[in-house]
Every structure is written in C-alpha cells, then in structure tokens.
Design a binder for these strands. Structure first.
Lengths: 109, 109
DNA sequence: ACTCTATCCATAGATTATCTATATATACGG
DNA sequence: CCGTATATATAGATAATCTATGGATAGAGT
C-alpha cells in the first residue's frame, strides 16, 4: 500500500504564499501555521518546506531576511513580494477551477 | 515558468475509479468521460492514463477484459472490483478531509 | 484506391514534487 | 548537563505526471 502524502501534491506553494499574506514568517513558523490552521491535517515536512522556499525565492515570489526571533534564535524571515501576490491570485483561481471540475466528476449524474 | 498540470496530482486514481462506478469502460473512454464531465478542465494524457490503469490492475482495484467496441474496435474494458469500490470510498473521504483543511488555510482568519 | 482523422493501446524517458533521512546549531527548562 | 523544541538545509529515494513515441484499425471523404 502506497504511503499517503501529508499534503495534496501541487498545493504546497499556494499554501505557503497564502500563509505569508498573514504576516512575514520564518520557515519553521510557516509549517507550524499550516499545521495548526488545518487542524493537524496538513503537515509540511522539512524536506518539502525548505526546497519549496528556495523555489519561491528563485522565482521572486518571496524575499528573505535573516533576523532574530522573539526567543533570540536566528531565523530566515520570508515576505511575500508583489509578484508573489499576483502568483498567489492565479494559483487560487486555478485551484478553484480544478476543484470545481473534480467535484463535477465525483458527483453522481 | 513551470508548465501547469492538466490535473491536480494525486487525484487521478480517484477520478478513474469514480468514472468506473458509472459503467465499465475502456481507457480511452475513461479519459473522454473525465474530460467531458469536467467541461474540458481535466485532461488525462495517455502517458498518465495507461500507467495509472496498470497500477489499478496490479492492486486489484479494477479488472480488465478485451472486447469489441460498438464501432467494432478492439478495446480493453475495465470494471471496478469490490476492493476498488472500497478504495474509492477511502480516497473520497480522505480527499474531502484534505480539501476542507486546505480551505481553512486559504480562508482569511 | 487513398488519405486523413479519430479511436485505441502502450512504453520510454524526462521532469517535478514530495518524502525520509541526515546533518548542524542553539535556547531553555529541568 | 541533558533533553526537547526550535531553526535551517541538503542528499537521495520514491512517485506521479508529462512529453514524445510507436503501432494498429475503422470509417469518412475524395
């Protein structure tokens, strides 16, 4: 039996971008936020999170800055850029279209 | 810019199994059915479809039989098995849980 | 007869996303 | 001083999808 993913593949970037609309956040905090808000359904593993953040940085959808946390630890804070905001909008609307389409297929005719 | 998928990854098996609850169908017909019912949003490429059907066969979720189509062409008809039906149920409920969780993250607090 | 299009199956190889596992480092509570 | 939680990151494995082929045939149109 294939192990099921902790995420719906293809949605991670969108989730991260969306989370950053709430506030600039460091990676660990993003993962925690997604886990908490989803009531522990969505778990972002570290091996998925950090590569994803690198991707988002490369594409200019987020920018990063090293800072100290409230508890005095070093962490890299990510902020959504204007391009990232635009990208998020596109991903959101595309996601809705997809979900609606899947809903039609899953519905009994 | 990375090319976007024609599907939400991770949902193909579920879509195929669900399609087979309507009627036994051959691969080509399954793809057409999904495309049509989704209003052309979801396109199952042949390179995704046939490997997926092999997976489902291997797992015993569908069985296959060579037959003639109405138009006298040779085609492999797939039927949902009892295990496949059970599997579909699990995937459906898991999908709903995931979608609901994603919805919470995408929602503004 | 010939050609074109749609129907039908299937695999190889590339790409991408995710996971598991590992490594490093430090603040803080007990 | 030890364990746990916090924090970042990469390597390698796995899995799912896509692109690109290849083959075969029915039927329509010319």
């Amino acid at each position: 039996m294939p192990k099921k993913s902790e995420l719906l593949p293809g949605t991670l970037d969108m989730l991260i971008l969306k989370t950053l609309t709430r506030a600039p956040m460091h990676g660990y905090g993003i993962a925690q936020s997604i886990k908490r808000i989803s009531d522990d359904v969505l778990t972002v593993e570290e091996g998925s999170l950090y590569p994803a953040l690198q991707r988002l940085l490369l594409q200019g959808w987020v920018k990063a800055e090293w800072k100290k946390t409230e508890t005095n630890r070093r962490a890299r804070y990510y902020t959504l850029t204007a391009e990232g905001s635009k990208q998020l909008g596109e991903e959101l609307s595309q996601f809705e279209v997809m979900i609606a389409a899947i809903g039609r297929v899953l519905q009994d005719a």
